[in-house]
Structure formats: C-alpha cells, structure tokens
Simulated scan of single mutants.
Amino acid sequence: MTKGSVRFESVTKRYGPVVALKPLTLEIESGTLCTLLGPSGCGKTTTLRLIAGLESASEGKILIGGEDVTHLSATYRRVSMVFQSYALFPHMTVADNVAYGLSVKRVPKGEAATRADAALEMVGLKGFGKRLPSELSGGQQQRVAVARAIVLEPEVLLLDEPLSNLDAKLRRHVREEIRQIQQRLGLTAVYVTHDQEEAMAVSDRIIVMNNAEIAQAGTPRDLYERPASAFIADFIGDANLLDVDVAQAGSETKVQLREHSFNLPRPTDLKGAAKLVLRPHQVRLSQAPSAMSLPAEVAYAAYLGNCIQYTLATAAGEIFAILPPSGQPFAKGDTVHVTWDPEDLRLVAA
C-alpha cells in the first residue's frame, strides 16, 4: 500500500445503540482527491473524523499509508484538516496562524517562518503574512486555512465542507484553487460536501453515502451516466424518474412507458417495474407529435440567460427540462411533445 493511501476494513462506528456507520470497507488511492458525498446524517463526516482520529472505530481497522492507525490518536497521525469554520486565531497574524502547528511540533522558529511563507505563496497569498484574519476576505481566509494544513506536510489532507461559508461565485473559484494545490503537491485528499456540483468539479473519485453506508462509488462521469439506483440518479444531478415496465430484458431491452413501447440499445438484468432515468438536458421538445413522443403542457417556463427551464405536465408524471435559449421559447399553457434519444436513457430498479 502506497504512502498516503487510506483503507477502511469493515469499520463500524456506534454511539450507544445508534449505528452512525455500518461496516464500511473502502480504499482511497495515494495522490487522489476522493469526495465523500451524501445527504445530512449519511455518515460522511463520521468517516472523515475516523480518518483524522477525532473519533475511534467501534469495530474494524483503519490504515493510512499501510500503517494501522486504528488506535493511534489524532496527534500522531500524519493528517491535516481544513474545517468549515476556518478556525483561525483572530489575534494572530496570518503567518503566525499558518506556522502555529509547526510551533506546537517544536519546529525552530526560523524554519517555521520560512515554511509558512512558502505555504502562503503556494496558495496565492505571498505578502499577506503580517495581516490579521479580519483584514482578509472569506476566500482568502479559507486559503490561509489550507496553507496551515499543508505546511505540516501531511500524508492525507482532510477537508470538511470547506466552501460552505462562501458565496456561489467565490466557491467556484476557491474549489479550483484547492484542486490545483492538491494536484501540484500530489496530496491524497478526502473532501466532504453535500454539494453535488462541487463534488463533481474537484474529484477523481466520489463515494456517495446514504443511510450510513456506501450507495455507489466511482468517477463523477460513472455516477452521472451509469447510476446504480434511483437514489443515485436523483442525487447526482437532476433527473426525471419515469415509471416503466421492462417487457423484455437481455441483449435487447424492450420498455413500455404508458402506451409507448421502444427499445433501449443496451442490455439490462431488470425485469418488470423499473425507473427510466431522463436527464433534463436530454429532453427534447417539439410542437409536432411523433411515434415516441409524450404530449405535455408547459406548467412553468423560466428564461435564465444561458438556458430555459421548463416544468412539463405529462400523463407519465412531471418532467423537468433544460433547453438552450434558441428559437421561440414555449410559454406556460402551451401544448408540446416530449421526445428523447434512446441512447441517452438509463434504467434503474424501481
């Protein structure tokens, strides 16, 4: 097992009778950024705190870089954590904040100052060392928190909802910086968020958690294009989940949607009731019906500049669509016909 890798072997966490984490086995490869993603209470933060040593495992084994750290305290684990609240000392300068962990480890003052300056330069804050945290923007404070973490030269960098206190535009900018720093240093990073877009933007791999266990793990593209369940399809990006019946499975899949019957160009093991996954950007609208179209009424239309969003009432249920702003947009109350490319569709269990 390489330096910086993280492995859980049947790790469980209980708080009395409450199981916060069901037996969990996972491996995070060295030098990758892996995001733990899921709704509140799914176990992602508990998993992060177990890696950090801030919680102890009830059962199982935790290894970092091949070393068993299950019973090792946080002080002796080569991990650093970036918290949601930044946790900067307001009375200390930026440089002193960054060097604080080094001083606790009794690194000589001159060396600590040099390393702190280098860390600040790495996060784009060269020359900011003499300022106080109150003199920085939210994004700059977050970068100080990242500098304070990486100056300790950890094997694993942990980030707990690091961007939740920033506005949307700044969040996008800072997440790009964090990703660039992680790749430049070759750090193993474990990132916790409930924001799907954020997870997809920064991750080599995403572990989606639900009900204290892994629902699915894979690359952002795997999870979006090949969801393993209705939960994943609905949680990773927007999705229309339509009730269908799989009339024929195997190498050629025949699907029944209301009165429409059509083939999907991929095999499936599903039979009977299933869910058809139709992404909003895969929806096509026309005024003329076709053999495979669903009649619909426009219940809502919103022009957002780069796209138009529609909510469509159909006999198969409500369908959400996102279309480019070209041509004459449809208005509320218009009758339209919903179509799609069968290549885009996926089936998941009902």
Rank of each mutant, 00 (worst) to 15 (best):
G129E: 07
A57N: 00
L72K: 13
K271G: 11
A291Y: 04
A149D: 05
A291W: 03
L50F: 08
A299F: 03
L33D: 06
L132F: 13
T47V: 12
K44A: 01
C307E: 13
I64C: 14
D167A: 02
A239V: 11
W340L: 04
I319F: 03
N211I: 03
V144D: 02
R258C: 06
P267K: 10
C42G: 11
A52Q: 14
N306E: 10
E153G: 01
D344C: 02
Y76D: 15
G218I: 10
S80M: 13
F89S: 07
S134P: 02
K275D: 03
D243K: 15
S40D: 00
A20Q: 03
Y15C: 02
E213F: 03
G66V: 08
L270G: 07
I319D: 04
A299G: 08
G53W: 01
L102C: 05
T219A: 09
A189I: 07
A168N: 07
S58W: 01
E259G: 05
D238C: 01
S40K: 04
L36D: 00
E343M: 07
A116V: 02
G237T: 14
A288I: 03
S103T: 11
G186F: 09
A149L: 12
D222L: 08
Q180F: 00
P267G: 07
P133K: 13
V336G: 07
L136E: 06
G127D: 03
L50H: 02
G4K: 05
T47M: 13
S164A: 14
A52I: 15
A239F: 04
L312T: 13
A299P: 08
C34R: 05
Q248F: 01
K271W: 02
A313S: 14
T193S: 11
V283P: 02
R7Y: 04
Q196R: 09
S293V: 06
G333L: 09
A212V: 01
K44T: 01
R346L: 08
N210W: 04
C42Y: 01
A230N: 09
R172K: 15
I236M: 11
L223F: 05
F89E: 06
G333T: 12
L63F: 11
S73W: 01
R106H: 15
L264E: 04
R78Q: 14
M1A: 10
R205L: 08
T32C: 08
L54I: 09
R14C: 09
P324F: 05
I236S: 02
V107I: 10
K44N: 11
S164W: 02
I206E: 05
G124M: 01
S203C: 09
T339A: 08
A116W: 04
K13T: 00
S164L: 00
S40P: 07
L88I: 13
Q256V: 15
L347T: 12
R258V: 04
V123N: 11
W340N: 06
I28L: 10
M92C: 05
S80L: 11
I51V: 15
R106N: 12
G129A: 12
T93Y: 08
V244F: 03
V208D: 00
V123I: 11
L223R: 05
G327A: 04
V338N: 01
T188N: 05
I62V: 15
L285I: 11
E252M: 10
R258W: 06
F231S: 10
T35E: 06
D117A: 15
L278A: 07
T114V: 08
L136Y: 06
K130Y: 07
R184T: 12
Q328L: 14
M1W: 09
G16W: 02
N97S: 01
E59P: 00
F231Q: 10
A299R: 13
